[in-house]
Nucleic acid binder design. Structure first.
Lengths: 227, 227
DNA sequence: CCAAAAGTGTTTTCCGTACACCCATGC
DNA sequence: GCATGGGTGTACGGAAAACACTTTTGG
């Protein structure tokens, strides 16, 4: 049986066509730890397990709009880095007719996020190395998101979305180290960041407890930049 | 209004939910020219224009299965490189309730492809620099696919899917040049290909018209390999 | 004065790029 | 013997990686 391109137009709304869900992997870095936001399921299936926030794409809604909506629902923030990740299917093996999950990932500054405080399925942050038991095949999605994020770090300035407007180079380095999962050399790191010209020194300083006060930097651009 | 994860499960089949289409950008290299397979639309909208092959995702069908089905329909080949590209929406601005297009791209050896011979919307190859007027926003999709392919070429062996089992280094270089859109240095190219150990020399040779016969090579692996 | 974090250069290694001539065959 | 495509090595430059000590502050 052959599908005709023309058949894209008038939907036979009768047959159960696959549903479209949108999931958003929301990352943050707290205190040297890369964390993802998960919600606890209060309904079946997988009741009580944790899952990536998401919901059905509504009629007429665009994919980014749906992803942004979920992001705002869960964290209250909106103007952050958000990128489409991958489209999975059969994540959910219960929906009759199948389902398609379009996944996104977002990077939020932990201090700006205000988690929704709901009675059931409350959201919570989990370190990527201390994940709870997850619903559907959400481990796969998280791993894929992490991999993508690690790659993006190498050739884009996406880290801007994980930090406040002003930050120290040590804070920035800790963000990189949390995501990459390994220590970086301080001198090489600073040399590289500065040579890429994605950050600029300000003339402010900030004392972090004991020790010499650190210079504060800012990102030259708070829009995504690819080098 | 908030979507609950639980609502992923029982679909309210009443509302017109967005449709899911699967498109497959099929690339080949012929004679130093990177080409994409397009089909001519015989129905509305965009009647008479050319478009990327695709169709609706059928109930219960997986995304790769749908993409593979389209690929086989159009070219007769199946065991080639196939990768998910991106998921667009609003490509089609006519479907009520909106539509989502999950796009893939495939790489086929031109000599193995046997194009479907249909009365209406016949498929045909078009050089990426001589594209006809396209339906929907298919230019965007093709450009995105090209960009992705160019990147993949740098750190994977995907070219194996564009060549026969045995090939000369010059043929391989022409494939790279067609995709990248620029000339490469012969010595550097060979050095790199051999040092990556993705190809191996055979002891066969092949005369290409006049000139010294060329050694034939094969890919060490005909599965995708990332370096 | 000591603990704690910030800040700073040089050397080596590796990879990408530039570049020109000889070799084997068909006609 | 000449036209055609196949095949080969070296040198340079830039980026990444390795590596250790001094500076400034708080307590």
């Amino acid at each position: 049986m052959k599908l005709k391109p023309a058949s894209r137009v008038p939907p036979p709304a009768s047959a159960t066509s696959p549903l479209v869900a949108v999931l958003v992997v929301i990352f943050t870095v707290v205190d040297g730890d890369l964390q993802a936001l998960l919600i606890r399921r209060s309904g079946d299936p997988y009741r009580g397990l944790w899952a990536i926030p998401g919901g059905l794409l509504q009629s007429g809604e665009s994919l980014v709009a749906a992803a942004t909506r979920k992001l705002v629902d869960e964290t209250g923030v909106q103007d952050v880095y958000l990128e489409q990740l991958y489209t999975f299917n059969h994540l959910d093996d219960v929906t009759p007719g199948g389902s398609v999950a379009v996944t996104y990932f977002a990077l939020v500054d932990h201090d700006r996020a205000r988690l929704a405080d709901r009675a059931d399925w409350r959201p919570a942050w989990f370190g990527m190395h201390r994940l709870p038991k997850l619903a559907f095949r959400n481990e796969e999605v998280l791993q894929y998101a992490l991999e993508r994020l690690r790659n993006k770090l190498k050739y884009t300035n996406v880290a801007y979305s994980l930090l406040p407007a002003r930050f120290t180079l040590s804070q920035l380095q800790r963000v990189y180290e949390s995501i990459l999962g390994r220590r970086l050399d301080k001198r090489n790191f600073r040399k590289r960041m500065l040579s890429l010209e994605i950050i600029e020194a300000t003339d402010e300083r900030q004392a972090e407890g004991a020790g010499r006060p650190a210079r504060l930097y800012r990102f030259s651009s708070r829009e995504p930049v690819v080098f």
